[in-house]
């Protein structure tokens, strides 16, 4: 079974920088668990999921910025906003997502 790191390696081998977004902590009800990951490419393509919906769109936007600056950051995703929404992505919790740039020459 391929892991997310197989996909990361493919991009690194092509000389691209990608962002790996990981849920590092949660509070309340969230769509996915701590440790869930997605990879975002420089063009905003997403591989894997951290739960979909608005939260994922925010993370994607930040990830493109992380790839550009090559500086990691933590993004707080608040799913409390619109509890009345019918969207399945609205869970009522908060999650912190660490977005980390990976590129070939970067050390470990």
């Amino acid at each position: 079974m391929d892991t997310i790191y197989d996909q990361v390696k493919e991009f690194l081998d092509k000389g691209e920088t990608v962002a790996v977004a990981t849920i590092v902590s949660t509070k309340g009800s969230t769509p996915r668990e701590v440790g869930a990951k997605m990879v975002v490419t420089a063009w905003g393509e997403i591989l894997g999921t951290i739960g979909g919906g608005c939260g994922e769109a925010d993370v994607r936007r930040e990830a493109i910025e992380v790839i550009r600056t090559r500086k990691p950051r933590t993004v707080r995703v608040d799913l409390l906003d619109d509890i009345s929404s019918d969207s399945p992505a609205v869970c009522g919790g908060i999650m912190n997502v660490f977005i980390d740039p990976w590129w070939k020459e970067k050390e470990g």
Partner: peptide
């Protein structure tokens, strides 16, 4: 970073356990 990705892929392939601290 490539070597780290390779190492992680190798771990999965071997069915070994590991921890990545960031």
């Amino acid at each position: 970073m490539d070597s780290l990705a390779e190492e992680l892929i190798q771990i999965k392939r071997e069915g070994a356990a590991a921890v990545l601290a960031t």
